[in-house]
Write a protein that binds this DNA or RNA. Structure first.
Length: 589
DNA sequence: GCCGTTTTCGGCCCGACTGTTTTCAGTCG
């Protein structure tokens, strides 16, 4: 555990979990709730919409729910000095290898400590060697079974460093649901957990099944032909592992109690904890079986009835994160979240028009894309190829290329769109322009006049300090033709962290100057991230949805952008391209 | 250690599964 002034949220979460584990091992009863508090603070850090260090910079650390006086003061010390005397003291005497072992599913604090102290191992790989030699099975409290479980778990941890992107998880879940419904005893099957909440990445896949024959349903589940092994199987739940080390958990419940099951396992954990705490204060106890009132269990076949019993409106799964939705559901003021059918156009598409860019070109022709957009019932789309390569062309050559593109789109509008489209009325001539490190654009200023409007985005120098990066972006947005900041954090899920920005400053600039932030619907981006969408919506910033398609089939990814928008509490009004062509032309003028 | 639609003190979510045990501890979601 390395402490330092520049700890990221992930590292801080790891640290706080280590502190929780340390307290757990000290084993004093009074520590019980302190342990939970540290675990909650770790979760809070992990889910925070901004870097904790930035919040600390702004004096807002304590505004993060779960971080109070004490933890904030320790973090303050870390950000100032690079260490915390208190945290160092708490972890003192505990072997560092322990914390590494705890990353293996099935190994918690106590198991880790026992393994490290009794086997004298110093790393995860040493544990693996010891287990292979049969040394673990000989320890008190361990046996052959737990030894082989540990080995399997280590093996799977190696393969499973990445969370799945939403479309892949959805495909897995779809196949399993189809398999479950083949069994006549299964009445219903639905996705649960982060998949049902449509989070951008999904860990384990959870599935709910309604049946009066749980044993048979679970037996059918573990016979799933594509599984690589069965992890566990009880009377109410079972887990299997798919190739690629994807874990699938299945939960069953009779149809008359299915609503409670759906609610319970859809989560999020934080939503459920907050909900149960609220219920407890009102004399009710919640579980996956229903709502207990004065010792009597009430069952619910639907989630709507479950929430109704608590005196609140049904909460859309996408916003069940305990960030205010419970209070809002109680006062019947939940947002009317944007839906796919509200979308009237796609504002980021790359065609195969040869614009001689240094980035990637699209693969489908403009006509094929327009045909696809027409099928989707869109009123308009924008072609937003990357700017022509700056190094390979002089200014005049760039202007010539952009003139050619402008003419091509004009022709498209006058002929193809007019004569062959049912719903599409206009194709916008746009461009995705690189923001240079010093804040300029990578096309000559005069070339901007050839466009209807422009997107700007960052494709280089990702590691700039927050204030310089913010300046860089704002100076690019200042060009009148520039309307949209595309994939604003430039993150790539599982590959690259996003850039650092002062969001409040960006939000303020956007609202004052009618600039828009994009929700990029490309599944490996989903950028803005949902938590930032929430902040942007609160700040009154208007957002655009674009698929960043490089092929006509990519247009259908819009649904994933909708998921992000919904998770950020965006309503129809918050999204620019829910507007009609007339309105949007005005907004982009 | 955190927090407030009973509370600034006194609470703090709920249950399943497994292995190694003989009634439970540890872990997970």
């Amino acid at each position: 555990m390395k402490l330092g002034k520049d700890m990221t949220n992930t590292q801080i979460a790891e640290l706080l979990r280590a502190i929780a584990a340390s307290y757990q091992l000290k084993g004093e009863e009074k520590n019980r709730f302190r342990i939970i508090a540290y675990q909650r603070a770790a979760d809070a850090g992990e889910h925070a919409s901004s870097e904790l260090k930035d919040l600390w910079d702004d004096g807002k650390l304590k505004e993060v729910p779960g971080i109070g006086e004490s933890i904030a003061s320790h973090l303050d010390e870390i950000f100032r000095t690079g260490t915390s005397k208190h945290f160092e003291a708490v972890m003192k005497g505990l072997p560092p290898a322990m914390f590494e072992l705890m990353e293996v599913p099935g190994i918690g604090a106590k198991t880790a400590q026992k393994l490290v102290s009794e086997l004298g191992i110093k790393s995860l790989s040493e544990l693996e060697k010891a287990a292979k030699k049969g040394k673990v099975a000989g320890l008190g409290g361990f046996g052959e079974q737990s030894q082989s479980d540990i080995l399997k778990s280590i093996e799977e941890t190696k393969g499973r460093t990445k969370r799945q992107l939403l479309p892949y998880a959805a495909a897995h879940a779809g196949a399993i649901i189809e398999w479950m419904l083949k069994n006549k005893l299964v009445k219903r099957a639905d996705p649960l957990g982060s998949l049902r909440r449509e989070a951008s990445t999904v860990g384990d896949i959870d599935i709910a099944v309604a049946t009066d024959h749980p044993v048979e349903a679970l037996a059918h589940f573990v016979k799933y032909p594509k599984k690589s092994r069965i992890l566990e199987k009880g009377d109410r739940t079972a887990s299997i592992i798919l190739p690629g080390d994807v874990q699938v958990d299945l939960m069953v419940q009779p149809p008359d109690a299915y609503g409670a099951l759906l609610q319970h396992f859809t989560g999020s954990k934080h939503h459920n904890i907050a909900l149960r705490e609220y219920a407890l204060k009102h004399g009710m106890s919640l579980s996956e079986y229903g709502i207990k009132i004065k010792g009597k269990l009430n069952k619910f076949s639907t989630e709507e009835d479950f929430y109704k019993k608590l005196g609140m409106d049904w909460v859309p799964p996408e916003i069940r994160e305990d960030t205010g939705e419970i209070e809002t559901a109680l006062t019947h003021k939940l947002p009317n979240l944007v839906e796919l059918k509200d979308i009237k156009g796609d504002l980021q598409i790359h065609s195969d028009f040869d614009i001689e860019t240094s980035h990637d070109l699209g693969e489908s022709s403009m006509q094929d894309v327009v045909k696809e957009a027409d099928k989707l019932g869109y009123e308009y789309i924008a072609f937003t190829e990357h700017n022509p390569s700056k190094s390979k062309h002089n200014e005049q050559q760039v202007i010539d290329i952009l003139k050619r593109k402008k003419e091509a789109i004009e022709k498209l509008n006058y002929s193809f769109v007019k004569n062959h489209c049912k719903s599409v009325k206009k194709v916008f001539n746009s461009l995705e322009i690189d923001i240079l490190p010093e804040g300029g654009l990578s096309i000559p200023d005069t070339a901007l006049d050839l466009l209807d409007f422009a997107l700007v985005s960052i494709h280089s120098s990702f590691r700039m300090e927050r204030n310089s990066m913010t300046k860089r972006v704002i100076s690019a947005l200042a060009y009148p033709k520039v309307k949209i900041f595309a994939h604003p954090t430039a993150r790539k899920l599982n590959e690259r962290e996003g850039i650092e920005l002062n969001w409040q400053e960006i939000f303020e600039y956007c609202t004052k100057n009618r600039k828009f932030l994009e929700i990029n619907a490309e599944p490996s981006r989903l950028d803005l991230p949902d938590s930032v969408v929430r902040e942007a919506v609160k700040a009154g910033v208007k957002l655009t949805l674009g698929t960043d398609s490089h092929h006509k089939d990519g247009l259908k990814n819009m649904i994933f952008g909708i998921s992000v928008a919904r998770r950020g509490w965006a309503e129809k009004e918050d999204i620019v391209n829910t507007r009609s062509l007339k309105e949007i032309e005005k907004m982009l003028e």
